[in-house]
């Protein structure tokens, strides 16, 4: 049981695909100008990762080693096509705003990375748990960046105005440079947190030794 929960939680925080491994940057920056777009993108990726991890894990003994990458890509592309048409049918406005970035989920290196590194080597159950954890981690990262950019750039969150009419929006946050700089600052914050934790562990270890 503990291994299962480990696989789940590592994707969310300790091995977060965006903040720690810096994977899947293209959708991460391109669609996070509002929180709702970020959420739609996160959910689409969630579906694709879950579906393809399950299928790859089921077929892991059948896929020949030499052509595995092409097989994974075709499986992923199939699920992305499904997600693309579903979004188009359910939420046409969001689909229009995400534009070419829904089909581009195919080349999200995070998804291919999970297939190669995990789903192709583990049982279906574990692969599903790993996919769930990783995609929730990705969703969390997308939503964090999306809401920060929307709050600063538009003064609202999920379309609800937060600061009233006197707020001067930071337009730069909605433009490409804002995305790069904000993600840089968030990564910086993550580094700082990790360093603080490591220092705390080292300090704890030394005091422990002194007591003994």
């Amino acid at each position: 049981m503990s291994q299962t929960s480990d696989e789940f939680f590592k994707g969310i925080w300790k091995e977060n695909p965006v903040f720690v491994h810096v994977l899947g940057l293209c959708p991460m920056l391109a669609v996070t100008n509002t929180a709702i777009n970020a959420l739609a993108m996160g959910l689409a990726t969630f579906f694709v990762l879950l579906g393809s991890s399950t299928l790859v894990s089921m077929l892991r003994h059948l896929i020949p080693k030499q052509i595995r990458i092409s097989c994974y890509i075709i499986i992923i592309a199939t699920f992305v096509t499904v997600a693309d048409y579903t979004l188009l049918a359910l939420v046409p406005e969001v689909h229009k705003e995400l534009g070419a970035f829904v089909p581009l989920i195919v080349v999200n290196c995070m998804i291919l990375g999970r297939q190669e590194a995990f789903a192709s080597k583990n049982s279906v159950g574990l692969a599903v748990v790993d996919a769930l954890g990783t995609s929730i981690g990705f969703l969390f990262a997308l939503f964090t960046l999306g809401s920060v950019r929307e709050i600063l750039g538009n003064g609202s969150l999920l379309g609800v105005s937060l600061f009233g009419p006197h707020f001067e929006p930071w337009i730069i946050m909605l433009l490409p440079p804002g995305g790069f700089i904000m993600l840089g600052l968030i990564l910086l914050f993550f580094n700082w947190l990790n360093e603080k934790r490591e220092n705390a562990i080292v300090q704890f270890a030394t005091t422990e030794r002194n007591v003994i």
Binding site: P177, G179, F180, L187, L188, N191
Partner: peptide, 21 residues
Amino acid sequence: NLMKGTAMSMIIAGILSMAFM
């Protein structure tokens, strides 16, 4: 030290992107 690596590159890219605007 904290800035080294990806965080720094990201901010450099942001400034470059501003120039391209």
